[in-house]
Design a protein around this nucleic acid. Sequence first.
DNA 1: AATGAATGAGCATTCATTCAT
DNA 2: GATGAATGAATGCTCATTCAT
Lengths: 202, 202, 202, 202
Amino acid sequence: MARPANPELKPRMLEEARRLLQRDGWAAFSLRKVARQVPCAPTAVYLHFDNKDALVHALIDEGMGRLFERLSTAAASKASSPRVRIERMCRAYMAFGLENREFYEIMFSLPPEQMERYPSEMYKRAVLNLGLFQEALAEAWGCPGSDAKDVRLAATSIWSCLHGALCLMCNQRIDFSLPQDEVIRSSVELALCMVDRRPGAG
Amino acid sequence: MARPANPELKPRMLEEARRLLQRDGWAAFSLRKVARQVPCAPTAVYLHFDNKDALVHALIDEGMGRLFERLSTAAASKASSPRVRIERMCRAYMAFGLENREFYEIMFSLPPEQMERYPSEMYKRAVLNLGLFQEALAEAWGCPGSDAKDVRLAATSIWSCLHGALCLMCNQRIDFSLPQDEVIRSSVELALCMVDRRPGAG
Amino acid sequence: MARPANPELKPRMLEEARRLLQRDGWAAFSLRKVARQVPCAPTAVYLHFDNKDALVHALIDEGMGRLFERLSTAAASKASSPRVRIERMCRAYMAFGLENREFYEIMFSLPPEQMERYPSEMYKRAVLNLGLFQEALAEAWGCPGSDAKDVRLAATSIWSCLHGALCLMCNQRIDFSLPQDEVIRSSVELALCMVDRRPGAG
Amino acid sequence: MARPANPELKPRMLEEARRLLQRDGWAAFSLRKVARQVPCAPTAVYLHFDNKDALVHALIDEGMGRLFERLSTAAASKASSPRVRIERMCRAYMAFGLENREFYEIMFSLPPEQMERYPSEMYKRAVLNLGLFQEALAEAWGCPGSDAKDVRLAATSIWSCLHGALCLMCNQRIDFSLPQDEVIRSSVELALCMVDRRPGAG
DNA sequence: AATGAATGAGCATTCATTCAT
DNA sequence: GATGAATGAATGCTCATTCAT
């Protein structure tokens, strides 16, 4: 009676889960809605994922991969100064966040409780994104290693700066009289100040 | 009068609501959990708050008030340059966020649907906080009005920069090898770059 | 500390209860809504009525009284034949039902469960309404006593006929293409057939 | 297939729903009470019915089907005058109502809000019952079409007359000293007056 | 691999009622 | 006479998960 496994089911689940998250947000997200969209039985999800958390983690992992593509494309732009490349990365980061507002929130704002169970191999992949900033920053600063503490610290601050703007925009905390593209430009410019501040030069 | 109200009940509700919101996020927040923690009957909450929204809004409003105290104290430090005062405000903001994580996340990360119903008189109080940054910035820049667009834009970017760092710290997204106080210092320094960038000077 | 009793409270409660029942129907009826309309504390209702049932019973009793007024006015029209008076009573009954649709339902269609506790002295008053039909019918038939079984039976059938039409109209079970006044006329005419059928003449 | 469905569950739900609706009325009806009576988990109801409405609608539809069987059997009695057939239909109607009180009240006394959501295909089936009266009446009157307005009106009044008696009996509003079968006979006789009143002859 | 049935916990909110004042 | 606080039960409905097939 063995029915051949439908090879498209798992990707379909991820796809619909992302769509639902993006459309309705985390609070309205449920496995049953995913199954209804796929469509398949709600129980079928458990054949491919251990539970709701596992599905979400897979989704975040996928998102981190997509973000990595965007950032590495920006980082790879040949024949340009590190500063310009970092600027492109910043803009790519902001664009990613705004194109995937709700989903972006899940990637970076899910409560710690839910992330404690995030698998470590996925964590490693997630950290690659910050790594891209570190590498570019090390190059801009002429540092030998991108893993030096001050490089990591600066990259983290750049990230914070971008992330904060995204959060406030996504959560509609920014005065509507300020055009979105100016907010983006302003935050990216601020982030770039980090590039210009040589460590130890302060 | 009637049966004497348990004077501890209302503050207890606010307290537990804060705790739960911070720990599990808005999506997992429920009045029944609050009641279970207080502890009291689920219906007792409705004796002190009109509904779920009202409870959360009260929480946000309280947080905004506390933040305002901190920021205005920092802003009032006599005999110091505007830049120094802004730095103190930034540090006060970060300190507030870290000392009041429960408040902080609720204040600035609740989903927009939740905020649409936020009472306008509370909204006015909330906006005062950003206003403090705008005033100091206008003074630093020698601008006449603190409500000019570029001042508001710059204040927003400072806010974003600080907010992003707080979010990532609260959500435990920052590598544990980076000491918290260095992350704070780095982000505050980055935010202060905004003070040094005279408008129109770019 | 004795506050003088507010003498208007009890009638106010009945008044608002009737209004609410009439407006929103039995399913949406609650003591708290009554109290909110009065306005008074929800608990104040219990000072005037034993409980929800008692309030409703008082309300029904009041309704029965109003109906009695309408019917006895119609029954009293001088210098007309008993048949004409019965016709007027039928029309008055229908008018009362249609003017108080939701309330009429409560008077005559509350589930038996709720009526088991209906006080017997109220029951006696309620039966007076049917008695008016019996008297007129006995007169029309030239019977000596209005309490003869066949008179009671015929009055009950008249009542049934009117009541059935009212129920179907109130519950919107009648095809909308049939004008309400024609349905009324037709049912009243049918009810009057009972007047023309001498008992034992069949 | 999956875990074998308990084949008794769905009919049990309908059965208990019927019982509860008849006993306590629509206002007190709840899915949880049904589940408690079945007994099963409250959520199990949703495996068999979309929601509360759907359960009740299924009940009404079933009742309408049963009524149709009874009425069409009575209407089909060969070699008898239309009047006699109508009399049989009236008696069948009354018998149905008294034997199936649970169904009857649900079918014809549910509040309009409930019926607005009644599916149109079910509505068509429901209307067939009145249609049977119309057809017989048209034949008795020698009318060509059973859908003429006066035929529909008369059928409606017959229906009202029977319905009213049933309602009052079901809700125990009729004096216990009147034997049920006499009440029935009296109301049926009254209803039949409609047959004898040729339209336009009045 | 995939399903339908079933459950138990959970949700926001309303209600009738009681109690002490 | 009248009140505010408090409760326990209830509502329709959704959800994550399990189980047997």
